[in-house]
Design a protein around this nucleic acid. Structure first.
Length: 570
DNA sequence: GCCGTTTTCGGCCCGACTGTTTTCAGTCG
């Protein structure tokens, strides 16, 4: 069966190929918008199609309905097949090179016959790119540089790897003379799971002077752009950064602009325009008249809407919600009372039960759940029945020394290939909270994997489904299964779905969190800590929950522990 | 290609910077 992911991918590819072909940019955008709309609806898009209700989805008109229908029925879209036949597949990867967009890629292909990154690299080295009109020596060098960059890093990095460096850079800039404010903006501020670069905003009483100072900061390897209001550079280690500087009175507008995301800003400016206003990083204008704002909240208020938290600014319906005053009240860091899913040195964790408990207590948590691996996870020194029983005794002892912290017993039990569990029911029934996770056989068919997960989520002893999609950021794709079916099973059986806060996972991702909530499922924000420091990942989990529009009540570990256990038991 | 309490046609966000041009196209976010 067709999945939302596949449909969106196909529409997106049509958009890119049309762009390459030189089509009307608004038509191109319509396909991109359609892809996003499909992703938001999720796999239920197939039901919408069967019900003849596809046209009710905003962004999907007559033409896209036909294409989606064709894909669902046959797995093919004639237009896409035709476009693929017209364009060598390697052209798409050329678009990833900084400085090359559709126009130039097309020109390179038509003039030089280049159709892949390797061919382009060769052409640059032979000095042939310069032969094309409008291309010069610098552009050729930039393209070669871009090819090297792509090969080295594949472009994106984990937010956890970039964040500390961004904080450091912000401190450096904030300390410069004349700088009144400096903030981390862009995808970092929106807490995207992976980011491409660091965006900083600066308020300065002497912008041009500040630009010069920033360009000479320590740690800069190479300046890549330099104008009166903007500096771009690459830091040692390869990370790119963009810094924009304005006068203090314009700062709120710059921060809003630089925080993005692109779709959010486009929609916001479109709304401003419908009010007869014009919004840019320099201000909100009625004609020539500036409507002043000292904060982002004042900008949104001037546009007739509630303040939209940065994590929600992804063009996912937040502007409509803010206009109608129905934004959710997002969960906050301080709302977490406890943490499930933590490992110790009984399996593959680095610290003892005692050390982990002390760390949890220091974080102000009121309950803390130990869940080491089960026996099938041989690589992780998983526990069999005997060792698990022995661990329960030790937990009992540690509990005596920590009267203020409720230590919960448990296990992260492997879900076997058929959806059964790796430990017998009588031992599971002795535990406070049981997490079930898939750690093997990721390549099962969609039907098998769906059945496997639905069965696990419905198991009477299972309380939480661990890292439900199995994705590893920049590493492994999620396994193929019907998420909504699993979410429904979880909701019906009072099994929480995990939001694994480990920066390599962040699983569930925001779209799926919203779909989980729609299905009535509850979420557990879990550190999956393998050491004391692992507990520091919890705020990233909260940020991801915020990106998924979740409120305090949606998250089980914001509840008192008695309520959580009662929920799991029912 | 989509969309509409301004519109079923005529819009569709806005500006910075680069590299190549003598006034601007392309890319980027």
């Amino acid at each position: 069966m067709a999945t939302a992911r596949q449909i969106a991918e196909a529409l997106r590819e049509i958009g890119v190929l049309l762009e390459l072909k030189g089509e009307n940019p608004f038509k191109v955008r319509a396909y991109e918008n359609g892809a996003r709309a499909v992703e938001q609806v999720g796999d239920a898009i197939v039901d919408r199609y069967r019900d003849g209700a596809l046209g009710e989805v905003k962004g999907i008109g007559q033409a896209l309905q036909e294409k989606i229908g064709a894909f669902i029925e046959s797995g093919h879209i004639p237009l896409l097949d035709q476009l693929r036949a017209e364009h060598p597949p390697g052209l798409l990867e050329l678009l990833a090179i900084p400085g090359l967009g559709p126009k130039r890629v097309r020109e390179i292909h038509d003039m030089l016959g280049v159709a892949s990154i390797s061919e382009l690299e060769y052409a640059c080295k032979e000095n042939r790119l310069r032969l094309i009109k409008g291309f010069g020596e610098k552009l050729q060098a930039k393209v070669l540089d871009g090819i090297r960059f792509i090969r080295a890093s594949a472009g994106r990095k984990l937010i956890s790897d970039v964040w500390p460096r961004a904080v450091e850079l912000r401190e450096q800039v904030a300390g410069l003379p004349g700088v009144e404010r400096c903030d981390i903006a862009g995808s970092l501020r929106r807490r995207r799971e992976t980011v491409k670069d660091i965006d900083l905003t600066v308020a300065s009483s002497h912008p041009e002077q500040t630009v010069g100072l920033i360009a000479r900061l320590k740690g800069i390897e190479e300046l890549t752009g330099h104008g009166p209001t903007k500096v771009s550079f690459r830091l040692k280690g390869g990370l790119a950064a963009d810094v924009r500087i304005v006068e203090p009175g314009q700062y709120a507008f710059l921060l809003q602009h630089m925080t993005g995301g692109m779709e959010h800003n486009a929609a916001l400016r479109g709304h401003a325009k419908s009010l007869g206003l014009r919004l840019s990083e320099y201000g909100l204008f009625r004609g020539e008249e500036l409507i002043p704002a000292g904060s982002e909240a004042e900008i949104y208020a001037a546009l007739g809407m509630d303040f939209i938290p940065p994590e929600m600014r992804e063009g996912r319906g937040e502007i409509e919600a803010a206009l109608e005053h129905r934004l959710p009240r997002l969960i906050e860091d301080g709302d977490l009372r406890g943490a499930f899913h933590n490992h110790t040195n009984w399996s593959d964790g680095a610290n003892s039960i005692e050390e982990m408990a002390a760390a949890a207590e220091a974080k102000g948590l009121r309950y803390f759940h130990i869940s080491d691996h089960s026996r099938a996870a041989v690589y992780a020194n998983g526990l069999d029945v005997e060792r698990l029983s022995a661990q329960l005794d030790e937990i009992h002892e540690v509990q005596k020394r920590h009267p203020k912290l409720r230590i919960l017993t448990g296990i992260e039990v492997d879900i076997l290939k058929d959806g059964g569990l790796d430990l017998p029911g009588d031992i599971l029934s002795r535990l406070d909270v049981v997490i079930a996770s898939v750690h093997s056989r990721f390549g099962q068919s969609r039907e098998e994997m769906t059945e496997r997960l639905v069965r696990a989520a419905s198991h009477p002893h299972v309380d939480i489904l661990g890292h439900p999609t199995g994705r590893l950021l920049l590493g492994r794709e999620p396994y193929d299964f019907d998420f909504d079916a699993v979410a429904r099973a979880a909701a019906a059986n009072h099994t929480a779905l995990e939001l694994n806060a480990n920066p390599h996972r962040l699983d569930l991702e925001p779209d799926l969190l919203r779909r989980a909530k729609q299905a009535g499922a509850r979420i557990a924000i879990n550190a999956d800590a393998h050491s004391r420091e692992g507990l520091d990942d919890l705020p990233l989990g909260v940020a991801t929950a915020r990106r998924g529009w979740l409120e305090k009540t949606d998250i089980v570990n914001t509840w008192p522990i008695e309520e959580v256990l009662a929920y799991f038991q029912r």
